[in-house]
Amino acid sequence: MTRKGLMLTAAVMLAGTAAMADTADKKIALSNNYAGNSWRQAMLESWQRVTEKAVADGVVASADAFTTAENQATEQAAQIQNMILQGYDAIVINAASPTALNGAVKEACDAGITVVSFDGIVTEPCAWRVAVDFKAMGKGEIEYLATRLPEGGNLLEIRGLAGVSVDDEIHAGIGEGLAAHPNFKVVGSVNGDWAQDVAQKAVAGILPSLPEIVGVVTQGGDGYGAAQAFAAVGRPMPIIVMGNRQDELKWWAEQRDAAQYETMSTSIAPGVSTLAFWVAQQILDGQEVPKDLTVPFLSVTQDTLDQALKDTPEGGVTSVDYTLDDAKKVIGG
């Protein structure tokens, strides 16, 4: 090796050790409860992309992702307990249940492991939470509809999976919005399970019994299915709030070009897993991090539609990969 090369290596090593002295030997694990939809796939890909680079750069020793096979809280609790045995320094969790993992999370905390939950958060006080204000998301949908339809009208609500906290929170937010805008009325409500095919079936089933619908409030992953159901029976297309899925954005762009269709789209970016990763890294690095952090949700408007559609892979979800600086900004409030 030349002298110059040696010096360069030394410099790189110095820079590396100075910035990341405390977490280079730390192991972080991702405990994920479900991988069966486009959002979760995008979330795992985002994790893979960002952590691979972080490991290569020597920021952390490893960052393995684990997904439970059956999306059951008891199974994920067992998975977390296995991670304790495997000696991870931090566990990043997207939880099947906000409460049912608390026992396992407490075991991890007691073993000195840093636990960061995101998206599907856990309520155990010893864990950190990177949460989205889902209530504000639901409320925002009604507020958007109020700007578009000042005279109000009948709405159809598509909910997510029954019994899951995200569904309750978005629903509660929609309730708040309705209280503030009493000229809107939800005349029907179905469970779309955040999946286009389920939503399409459910909406098609309830449509014949409904009066004219001016707007559809959704939770993401269900807008395209709802549009298909409306189109199939030839009813006037209401304003359907979308959820950043590629099929939804594509349909929206087509409708815009064909009939000046206007709507908005909002959802939590799947890349939030990488934000949780950086938050965990910062905690391991000894930084003071508040237990409750809020991430902004990602919205697509009529103006940003083309760009968003271009950036979103076929069958995927609009996303961003978060960086260490993003994490520091969120931590700083």
Partner: peptide, 13 residues
Amino acid sequence: LTTSGDANIALRY
């Protein structure tokens, strides 16, 4: 064990 409940907690059982 879990210290808290959930309506879907034991469907696997």
